[in-house]
């Protein structure tokens, strides 16, 4: 069991922070057991690495074939769906638009109103009565105006007729006076006496 302040294997694989590494460095300088443990790890790793990577027997490569290539639109679409930030941004934008549209077109809240039928009927009757009274008054006024107009016209005609009759009467009187005077003269002064 190691007496190192930190796990020597973490130290060996370079997984310790700088400060911890320094502490292990100091410790191993004075601890033979931990140095031995580190040497054991190094030799095991060295044996493992003594079998190096192989060259790949056949190189891998792709050839672009336009027939099978997705269109620019399809590539954009796939990239859009494949990208979480883009999807998130689009979703947020759609949500914002939905909120704005909803706020603009929000229906006016309808508050329920208690309906007093009796009052409504009374109001209705009152309004009908007022309307009938008003209509009757207007009709009476119209008839009065018409009667007054007709009366005025008749008076004017009557006066005109009276004046004409008066004039005719005066004319007739004048003629009668004239004939009366002639008859008088004829009676008073026969034709042979003059």
């Amino acid at each position: 069991m190691s007496c190192s302040p930190f796990d020597l294997r973490d130290y060996f694989f370079g997984e310790l922070p700088e400060e911890s590494r320094r502490q292990v460095d100091l410790h191993t300088k004075g601890c033979a057991a931990c140095r031995e443990e580190l040497n054991s790890l190094r030799s095991t790793q060295a044996i493992l690495l003594s079998v190096p990577d192989e060259e790949i027997p056949q190189r891998i490569g792709f050839v672009s074939d336009r027939v099978y290539e997705p269109s620019r639109l399809l590539r954009w679409w796939r990239a859009f769906w494949g990208s979480a930030p883009r999807l998130g941004f689009a979703s947020a934008a759609m949500l914002s638009v939905a909120i704005i549209v909803s706020a603009i077109h929000r229906p006016v809240p309808v508050t329920p109103v208690a309906v007093d039928v009796a009052k409504l009927q009374a109001d209705f009757s009152r309004q009908v009565g007022e309307a009938v009274e008003k209509a009757v008054a207007e009709s009476d006024a119209r008839h009065e105006r018409r009667t007054a107009e007709l009366l005025t016209t008749a008076t004017h005609r009557f006066e005109a007729k009276l004046m004409a009759d008066k004039a005719a009467a005066f004319q007739n009187l004048a003629i009668m006076d004239k004939y009366a005077l002639r008859d008088y003269r004829a009676s008073m002064f026969p034709e042979g006496s003059r």
């Binding site: 990577d53 190189r59 891998i60 490569g61 792709f62 050839v63 672009s64 290539e69 590539r75």
Partner: peptide
């Protein structure tokens, strides 16, 4: 969509 770019990437990582 640059296939040649990807081929270069493969050459770095295939081994």
């Amino acid at each position: 969509g640059d296939v040649e770019g990807f081929n270069l990437l493969i050459s770095r990582w295939e081994k």
